[in-house]
Design a protein around this nucleic acid. Structure first.
Length: 617
DNA sequence: GTATTTGTTGCTAGT
DNA sequence: CACTAGCAACAAATA
């Protein structure tokens, strides 16, 4: 039998423990074994990612690399800087590869990319082995068992998951890793097109990541922030499998915490340490196996007996929600991330709706500014200067640290959409996509749909108050004092509503309530609240009720051809815009989602189609 | 089929 | 501090 020469392709599974795919690779008993990572231009240029997440990715790569070197000093994580689509055909030949092994990807770009690579492997006579390991159950199997439909409820997910089978148990960790073979790269490097570079605004230096396939020293080194032209990250949170396993160990040792965990009883105001596990960023990069997390918790719960919490509020319940969103995304594909053409997403005539590419039906990454007021509100929300300290603290924590508690996400998401600004959930999802360390496309889109009451959840009359909700958890305003230092000396009585504080109190605290926080920001000032919340809450409630009565969904004809507008006769005056908003300069023309009459056709910016000029089916 | 209950986590004003 | 009713009222699951 010919000797097996195996490439193990790490992607979003940056770990050695409990990896079904890695086990499959090692079971081949390779004569040559290359653990590689492809530095993919799609992520480098076409995916939004804040500095904190880039840093976290590098942390995970470096930790994994070190762990492999410990098992075999001849090994490390070999990074090759080229698009996998063009790289692999050359690699198969140059390295005389017999097998390619990787963990199944679940996102739309990942699936398209893997299809291309698998075709190339077939052509080259390379055997491809793919194993599911990113979710508790293979999402495609869950969808099949759910009648081909997206899993839109916990009940549906659990029923379908049960039919797929038992969640796989822990796989023994590798004790040794085989030697790599020779690694010639004496072939031409396909240079990526750096435009458009969605990360350009973050670079302070030129990106030099693609100078050569094997990196600046020709040793397949992991890229660095400097090479990518990025300044330092601001987050205190660090990535890597070692940290993830330590953290998990610590949680599991606390049997009471693990067995009785109930998400709604954990505080969104607690930050040091967070009230929840803080393992989601590690799950995102695959530095922790979700199945290992599940079973180690479940074993504690089973042993604990009476008094243990149960899904959906328990720790394992959180993981089930993750699988629910993954399976819903698997069923819907790319439109899961948008309203247009998404049959399970309710249509609400939000402000700042996305532009859609008529040829693909996919959003372009640009949006209509139908209201200057809404745009100003959105910018103030994004940058944490709404004048509501609870909201601002959370948004600044998100930007600075890359993580906020789940209930904090609820609070700011409700505020931006159905409970305040009436701005499209897709705008908020984009900001989270950029700033969250644990940004998981399926969970992000799903949770934004949930909070905006466009799918998964519908009780829009349950509205988070930017004052009361925070105060319930944090009377003294510790979170605000940390992330909104302008207010750190203000009396607790006014910390959630500084505009109500008497002048002497403000003076004592050394702060003035002034301006909008964006323009001409003066020292020792904090902005006035950008609207009367109770007034906005009522306007939004009425508008939501109206939209629910109309009952349109994202794939309905009226939504796609723009005729939905006839069903919302007052949509650009009273109930949607509110009394502050009198601008009507475009007469609502720009608000049609598909009928771009008189408009230049927007170029797709953030789509696979644009990146690789491939036709979507 | 209809009616009732349930659903990860609202707010206020009460006991 | 834990719990409840009332607020107005959605959609899916269950009886």
């Amino acid at each position: 039998m010919a000797k097996t020469r195996v490439i193990y392709w790490f992607r979003t599974d940056l770990r050695l423990h409990d990896s079904p795919a890695l086990k499959a690779a090692l079971d081949l008993n390779p004569a040559a074994f290359w653990p590689i990572f492809t530095w993919d231009p799609h992520y480098v240029y076409r995916a939004r990612g804040g500095l904190n997440r880039w840093q976290f990715l590098l942390d995970c790569q470096n930790d994994l690399s070190k762990s492999m070197s410990k098992l075999n000093p001849k090994l490390k994580l070999f990074v090759l800087r080229e698009a996998p689509q063009s790289l692999f055909p050359k690699l198969f030949k140059a390295w005389e590869v017999t097998h390619l092994v990787f963990e199944k990807d679940t996102d739309s770009y990942g699936r398209e990319r893997d299809q291309v690579v698998m075709e190339a492997a077939k052509k080259a006579g390379v055997v491809v082995i793919v194993k599911s390991g990113r979710t508790l159950w293979d999402s495609d199997e869950v969808v099949k068992k759910n009648g081909g439909e997206p899993t839109m409820s916990m009940a549906a997910l659990r029923a379908a998951g049960g039919k797929v089978g038992k969640i796989p148990r822990l796989i023994p960790s590798p004790q040794r890793l085989p030697d790599p073979g020779e690694m010639p790269v004496d072939f031409e490097q396909d240079q990526p097109d750096p435009a458009p570079d969605l990360n350009a605004s973050r670079r302070t230096e030129k990106d030099t990541g693609y100078k050569s396939i094997a990196g600046p020293s020709g040793d397949f080194a992991i890229e660095t922030m400097e090479e990518l032209g990025f300044p330092s990250a601001t987050t205190p949170h660090r990535g890597g499998e070692s940290i993830a396993l330590e953290r998990l160990d610590k949680i599991i040792q606390d049997t009471k915490y693990t067995a009785t965990f109930e998400k709604p009883n954990t505080s969104p105001a607690q930050f040091d340490p967070p009230a929840t596990s803080f393992l989601s960023p590690f799950l995102h990069f695959g530095a922790l196996s979700v199945r290992e997390f599940y079973w180690r918790v479940q074993d504690v719960v089973d042993a604990y007996g009476k008094g243990a919490s149960s899904p959906p509020t328990s720790l394992t319940g959180q993981l089930l929600f993750r699988d629910m969103y993954f399976a819903a995304q698997a069923a819907r594909g790319a439109v899961f991330h948008q309203t247009a053409n998404n049959p399970s997403c309710r249509f609400i005539p939000w402000h700042l709706p996305s532009k859609t590419d008529p040829s693909t039906g996919i959003v372009t990454g640009e949006y209509h500014v139908d209201s200057d007021t809404a745009e100003a509100w959105f910018q103030r929300w994004k940058h944490g200067v709404t004048g509501f300290p609870w909201i601002d603290a959370l948004m600044r924590q998100l930007k600075q640290d890359g993580w906020i508690h789940h209930l904090g996400r609820h609070s700011v998401a409700c505020f931006l959409t159905r409970g305040g600004c009436y701005v499209d959930w897709e705008r908020g999802a984009e900001v989270f996509e950029e700033w969250l360390l644990d940004h998981e496309p399926a969970c992000n889109a799903g949770n934004w749909q949930w909070l905006s009451c466009t799918a998964f959840f519908a009780q829009f009359f349950r509205c988070y108050s930017p004052v009361a909700f925070g105060r319930k958890w944090d009377k003294e305003g510790a979170l605000i004092r940390k992330y909104v230092p302008e207010l750190k000396d203000l009396d607790a009585k006014y910390i959630y509503e500084p505009w109500k504080a008497p002048l002497p109190d403000l003076k004592k605290a050394g702060v003035r309530i002034k301006g909008d926080g964006l323009s001409d920001k003066e020292d020792r000032t904090y902005p006035k609240p950008m609207f009367d919340f109770n007034e906005r809450r009522q306007i939004c409630l009425d508008a939501m009720k109206k939209a629910y009565d109309v009952g349109l969904h994202g794939a309905d004809k009226q939504v796609l051809d723009g005729s939905w507008k006839e069903l919302f006769p007052d949509s650009d005056t009273s109930e949607v815009r509110g009394e502050h908003d009198t601008d009507d300069e475009d007469g609502g023309k720009k608000r049609g989602r598909e009928s771009h009459a008189g408009e230049k056709r927007a170029k797709p910016k953030n789509t696979i189609a644009a990146a690789f000029k491939k036709q979507k089916k």
